[in-house]
Nucleic acid binder design. Structure first.
Length: 438
RNA sequence: GUGGGUAUAGCUCAGUUGGCAGAGCGCCUGGUUGUGGUCCAGGAGGUCGCCGGUUCAAGUCCGGUUAUCCACCCCA
């Protein structure tokens, strides 16, 4: 027992915002949601926890999963022990689809905006709790390649609407990488892909070094890999460039066809917003075709602000039906936090209130309450100042919260209502039944 | 998990070779009568992260511990 104060420290990696910042974040979420719905994606929400075996179904991410346990659980009670907080929205989505096969209409297009948790060391742009905005399309047997192009288009429209600093969406296709590496006779293409993905981090020399020391590749193989990784461009002409490297495999040409299709489909987007880049691989091993990764141009090492790709059978662990899909995720928290840190967010009011109704005196409370109610009835967000403080203090309250208008009910019988515009300082006679804000 | 930095007021930080705890911003009050922002005056607010050691004396030096930040790993 103690009556000492607990320091109200924020928890590292678990961001929270002051009201005026949160208001901006809510507007972002609204904009993202509207755009997802504009393309016909429907919303689902899955529980924050999944069975550990679901979370572990793909990849070995066990170390970053937070597990659930009651503080006072009996020693022999492990009923919750098999639950973990989800670390992304794709795996829960796959489980959801597999579990609701009979209730869903396919191709199933869903969006999901939820928090996820990862037990990693927090850093700039790296959080332990953050919000992802996912869209995925999933369909039995096959998903049209059109979706591979539609998803980046949606993301492009959202990022444009949010007016983000310069960014680019990088595109690749796992089939190209895997086919190319197999065509080179590399035994472990998956591991080679993983190493190649570090290109922007450790550079071509570093990647070459790892490829030769860890995978034992020959000098020719290494230089071929690096030649491939160096190829990038905004249109399908890069397909020819890759072809000129002289490696042949069926998988490779399949990947090249797909990539060319996606690039051609997006050719109307502004120059540079979508680029193919052979050094992009994505760490997650369930991607099998198109992969996406977006970054800020000014802060390339900040990490990806958006990522996704195509997977042939993500739900394979949950059902025998073949359920390929393609999806993309916007890293809302990562993007938002960066803009906040760079001072690039324009914040306004800290509350949604349009009008503060002044309480002139305790005797006038009835009038003031009625005035507030009338304004609310006309669709305005209105709060009544509940203490008969000095008028200056009441105005100051409105001013500090960013409330644009202060309403003065009559201070004496027979006097008119007045409304003050805090932006201009102007104060005019007004009728609560007809007043319109500018 | 590995390596390095930091820890002083609500926030951002100063604090000399060890000698009584500071600034800016923010907050509260006042500058008469029914009006915010600017300006002026006043005020509140700190076991100097925590535990131990050296010393007449520790925010300052030493050891430990915790938190935090950065890099690695990995990723939105």
């Amino acid at each position: 027992m103690t009556d000492q104060l607990v320091k109200p420290l924020p928890i590292s990696g678990f961001p929270e915002w002051v009201p005026e910042v949160r208001l901006v974040e809510q507007h972002w979420i609204d904009a993202i949601r509207r755009k997802f719905e504009r393309y016909g994606f429907c919303s689902i929400e899955t529980p924050s926890v999944e069975a550990l075996e679901v979370l572990m179904a793909k990849g070995e991410t066990s170390k970053e999963v937070y597990t659930l346990r009651r503080l006072q659980a009996d020693a022999d009670d492990d009923s919750d022990a098999r639950l973990g907080l989800h670390f992304d929205l794709t795996v829960p989505f796959a489980r959801y689809v597999a579990g609701h096969l009979n209730d869903l209409v396919f191709p199933f297009k869903r969006y999901q905006i939820q928090r996820v948790w990862r037990g990693e060391r927090p850093q700039e742009g790296r959080f332990r709790e953050f919000t992802q905005c996912d869209i995925d399309v999933i369909n039995p047997e096959q998903v049209s390649l059109q979706f591979d192009a539609e998803l980046p288009r949606i993301v492009h429209e959202i990022m444009t609407e949010l007016d983000l600093p310069a960014w680019s969406l990088y595109l690749n296709n796992r089939k190209i990488l895997q086919g190319f590496y197999e065509g080179l006779g590399i035994a472990d293409p998956i591991e080679a892909i993983r190493i190649a993905d570090k290109m922007d981090k450790i550079g071509a020399d570093g990647v070459g070094e790892l490829l030769s020391t860890q995978l034992g590749l020959s000098q020719e193989q290494v230089s071929a890999c690096l030649d491939l990784a160096r190829i990038n461009g905004g249109d399908s002409s890069i397909v020819d460039a890759i072809g000129r490297l002289g490696v042949k495999s069926d998988l490779l040409s399949e990947g090249l066809d797909e990539l060319a299709f996606v690039l051609d489909s997006l050719s109307d987007l502004p120059e540079g917003s979508v680029r193919a880049d052979m050094s992009i691989a994505r760490g997650l091993d369930y991607y099998t075709g198109t992969v996406y990764e977006a970054k800020f141009l000014d802060w390339p090492s900040y990490g990806s602000i958006c990522a996704g790709g195509r997977y042939e059978n993500l739900a394979g662990s949950f059902t025998k039906r073949s359920l390929p899909g393609v999806g993309i995720s916007i890293g809302l928290t990562r993007i938002f936090a960066k803009l906040l840190a760079e001072g690039l967010l324009t914040t306004g009011a800290s509350c949604p209130t349009d009008v503060l109704v002044v309480l002139p005196s305790e005797q006038r409370r009835g009038d003031a309450t009625a005035t507030a109610a009338e304004l609310r009835g006309r669709g305005l967000n209105v709060e009544l100042y509940h203490q008969a403080d000095k008028v200056g203090k009441q105005i100051r309250y409105a001013s500090r919260k960013g409330i644009p208008y202060v309403w003065f009910p009559p201070f004496d019988d027979g006097k008119p209502h007045e409304v003050k515009d805090l932006g201009s300082g102007e104060q005019v006679v007004a009728d609560p039944a007809t007043w319109q804000r500018d």
